[in-house]
Design a protein around this nucleic acid. Structure first.
Lengths: 216, 216
DNA sequence: AGACTGTTGTTACCGGGGGTAACACGTGGT
DNA sequence: ACCACGTGTTACCCCCGGTAACAACAGTCT
């Protein structure tokens, strides 16, 4: 029967179209930042809005599809750094450096991933639904790192819970420091990596007091 | 001359009005979240939009004025915790706890401060202007903590730079972990504080490996 | 052939958001 | 009486996300 072959062809055609649209969207987002409008994306793709909506449902759908590509790439790079056969300190430094190199190389992509401009999911949840509001990518990174820590590091009782806290905390540290550094960039990436690793290695606890502070 | 007294009276009246408007805006933001519309705020205040614009210029102006009140309060509380006469570990824990207690007590305020929905400053800077895009409050906290660290902790050469990195990093850690915790809240605030302080105290470096990880 | 179905594309519209222009009113100062 | 000024309104503009309604064209079924 010809129907199945026809349907097949149609499907692959639709997928190709979808990829083309995503590439156009990518170009616009890279140029205009996360606040790129649907009109602009449609124009870049040489078509009009309703087609975009047919393919992606709503703006959130397009953005999610767009984000997934970049997210997957970054996540794979981070996993590789995390799995390198080296001492823990070196793995941590490699992971920090991988992340920072990525955001340094393509700041607009990073900005798009981390600041999705808005929810796109105005779910009418009543009770305090705070949280889940930082970029979803950050959450994902935090969870991922948490499980890696839980798998590999011996943390005694409550290990699972501690690992998750640390996962989110370390990711947040990396993100905030990176975001700030990217704005001013007053020193090299290596120095940033070293300082952050030093922080995680307890140098804050080990350092001595300077005169003039409160208490001892 | 009566003019100065009259002008005086007018000015204080205008200031009172401004405070009333801010309080109305506060109510709406607390109810509707950061995406509260100018129409809604005007309605809550019992007036119409143009008055708001006369008082605050634009939406960003209103939001900035609104944010400053809460920001100052939080900042003062944090400074108090940071200045308590106690050992460093206790001061760190107190500061973490202060921050987390604040976001736990008033999640909507926190959400408003941290996720200002959008820039409000679409400055057409050309070059990579990434950064400065997380909530300004986070930046401010990071800088503040950085200077405190630089003032009090002996970090050897490059101390200034290291302190700033740590300031932003620690604030980011606190923020990300707090944001995540606020969403699920699977354990008490005390445990969160202890775990984060442990992380800063180098427990990650000290902990042993579990079998199965890469390298040793 | 002709009728049916599905996809691709269009134009034209809706509701709502930020922001502003133009005008009405009251009150105190000269 | 007149002026200056702050408060308030209505009515509008433009843009954005999203949708309805329709046009054109393929391939399929009888």
């Amino acid at each position: 029967m010809e129907t199945t072959r026809g349907a097949e062809r149609q499907r692959t055609a639709a997928e190709r179209r979808r990829r083309e649209l995503l590439e156009a969207a990518d170009r616009v987002v890279l140029r205009d930042g996360p606040q790129a409008s649907m009109n602009a994306i449609a124009a870049e793709a040489g078509i009009t809005k309703p087609i975009l909506y047919r393919h992606f449902g709503d703006k959130g759908g397009l953005y999610r599809a767009l984000a997934q590509r970049h997210t997957d790439a970054l996540l794979n790079a981070l996993r590789a750094a995390l799995d390198a056969p080296a001492r823990r300190r070196e793995r941590v430094e490699a992971t920090l450096d991988t992340y920072l190199a990525a955001i340094e190389a393509r700041p607009q992509v990073y900005r798009f991933l981390m600041h999705p401009s808005d929810d796109a999911a105005p779910s009418p949840e009543q009770g305090f639904d705070v949280g889940r509001h930082s970029a979803p990518l950050l959450r994902r990174l935090g969870e991922e790192l948490g499980t890696v820590i839980a798998e590999r590091v011996d943390l005694g009782p409550d290990s699972e819970q501690t690992a998750r806290i640390w996962g989110h905390g370390i990711v947040g540290m990396m993100h905030a420091a990176g975001d700030w550094w990217l704005g001013e960039r007053p020193f090299s990436r290596e120095q940033l990596v070293r300082s952050l690793a030093d922080l995680l290695w307890g140098r804050l606890a080990a350092a001595g007091d300077l005169p003039g502070g409160p208490g001892f």
